[in-house]
Amino acid sequence: MKNTQQITRAMQAVAASKLRRVQTRAEASRPYADRMAEVLTEVASRTSGSAHPFLTERPIKKRLLILVTSDRGLAGGLNVNAIRAGLTYIRQGEDTVLDTIGRKGRDYFRRIGVPIIAEVSQTGDRPELKDILPAVTVARDEYLKGNVDQVALLYTHFASISKLEPTVRVLIPVQVPERKEGLRVDYLYEPEPEEVLARLLPRYVEAQVYAAVLDNLASFYAAQTVAMRNATDNAGELIDDLTMLRNKVRQATITKELSEIVGGAEALAAG
């Protein structure tokens, strides 16, 4: 029992340090994402709303869900909650095909027979953009080919260590971010704005998915830290209980032996 407790305590420490590392990586990707969003807002304001298929809403007949889960377990209810959110999404609306990032979601939906058109897993604890690009490329192509009319993204958002929120968001058609006050810049475009927009949008979508994968990974380590802390505490309680039980048993044995000895001595004295 004490060994188990040592293991869970070590796993807790490892998960906590990995959580910090993932948060640093998420932080590092912010400058790109922020500037990308600003630039996109500017370009979109200079082009018509139907300048690119990624900006055009169309009647939804079929949907694609990019489902981000972790590859590994031992993370409390993290994946169960994400899968449940996925089930809700699938049930409430048009037909859905899945594009999974991470093993847990893939395995579950494969078993219950939801079509999975692409999957990426084993991206490790340091995912790079190129690791997840295949999944994004498939989603983008399906949308451009007209096979699906909406691409959504489901991942677990790390709000705080005790607040992990399964989040569903529409990815394509792209929702252009609102303009912040005083950021208006009148660029000279080379080539035309429409052409720049067509090149920006795919990058913007990729950056969103990449951010979601990092966010989900942060949630995974947070969930693991908490799960292992609970396990360590539970092991602690069990150790206390078992120690108590052992002492009681030992005491009972001693008492019994003592009473036998006393009983024997009395019998001898009486005899």
Partner: peptide
Amino acid sequence: DIDEARAEEARHRAESLL
């Protein structure tokens, strides 16, 4: 071109799983 090849791979994996 590398992305396309990798996307195709991902699709194949899903198909063979199915």
